[in-house]
C-alpha cells in the first residue's frame, strides 16, 4: 500500500500493532493526543499553497484529523512549506520555524521543495529544502492534490505517534551547525540571528 490515498479509517486500524512496543502507556497517550491536534501555520510560499484552502474547507475538511490552521507561529505545531522558496522567502520561513514552540514538524509540499521542481534552473529558488530546515514529511507532485496532502498528514501522524528521536525539531537542535552552515552559505552576510541562543541553557 504505498501508492495512492490511504483512507484514514484504515490507517487507524493498522497503526495499533506497530507503535506500542517501546512506549509506556503515558507516552502513548501523549503521542496520540499530539498526533490528533496539529496546528498548522497558515503561511504559503509557492503556488502549492493554492491547494491548502480546499484541504481545510468543507470539501476535504482536514479538520476531522485534528488539523487546524492558526495565524501565528507561536501557537503552531506544523509548518507547511508549500512550494518553491526564494532565498528571501526562506529567511522568513526560517524565522517563523524558529519561533514555533516544540514539538514542531515541517511538511515540504510539492516537487519544488524536494529538488527544485520546474524551477530547478532558477537563479532565485533553493533546490533542497532539507539543507536548511529539517523536513519531516515530503509530499511530492506539482501541485499535490488535497488527497496527497492528507496522506502526508496521516503519515506524519504515524511518525509523531512513533515519537522517535529522528523528529525534525530534535535534529535541528542536535545538528544545528550543519543547517546553520548551509544557511550562512546561501545568505552571506544577511543571515538571521543564531537559533542556538534560544536553547543555550537546555540540556540536550
Amino acid at each position: 500500500m504505498d501508492e495512492g490515498f490511504i483512507p484514514y479509517q484504515q490507517s487507524l486500524e493498522d497503526e495499533e500493532q506497530s507503535i506500542k512496543s517501546t512506549q509506556s502507556v503515558i507516552e502513548q497517550a501523549i503521542a496520540w493526543f499530539r498526533a490528533h491536534s496539529m496546528f498548522v501555520l497558515a503561511y504559503g510560499t509557492g503556488c502549492g499553497a493554492i491547494e491548502m484552502p480546499p484541504t481545510f474547507t468543507s470539501r476535504y475538511d482536514i479538520e476531522r484529523l485534528g488539523v487546524v490552521g492558526v495565524a501565528t507561529p507561536r501557537q503552531a505545531d506544523i509548518l507547511i512549506v508549500s512550494g518553491y522558496c526564494s532565498p528571501k522567502t526562506l529567511k522568513r520561513v526560517i524565522r517563523s520555524y524558529e519561533q514555533m514552540s516544540e514539538p514542531k514538524y515541517i511538511i515540504g509540499l510539492g516537487s519544488c521543495t524536494i529538488n527544485g521542481g520546474m524551477y530547478w534552473d532558477s537563479y532565485n529558488t533553493i533546490k533542497k529544502l532539507d539543507d536548511f530546515l529539517p523536513v519531516d514529511m515530503y509530499v511530492n507532485g506539482c501541485m499535490p492534490r488535497p488527497e496527497a496532502l492528507i496522506e502526508g498528514f496521516v503519515k506524519l501522524q504515524e511518525k509523531i505517534r512513533a515519537n522517535s528521536s529522528e523528529a525534525g525539531y530534535i535534529q535541528y537542535r542536535t545538528r544545528y551547525a550543519h543547517y546553520r552552515a548551509n544557511q550562512e552559505r546561501l545568505f552571506g552576510t544577511q543571515v538571521q540571528p543564531r537559533y542556538e541562543e534560544n536553547f543555550a541553557g537546555m540540556n540536550l
Binding site: N115, G116, W120, D121, S122, Y123, K127, K128, D131, L186
Partner: peptide
C-alpha cells in the same frame, strides 16, 4: 545555469 550550479546543491 552557471549561477545555479555555483550557488545551489542539487539532489
Amino acid at each position: 545555469l552557471a549561477y545555479v550550479n555555483a550557488h545551489y546543491d542539487f539532489r
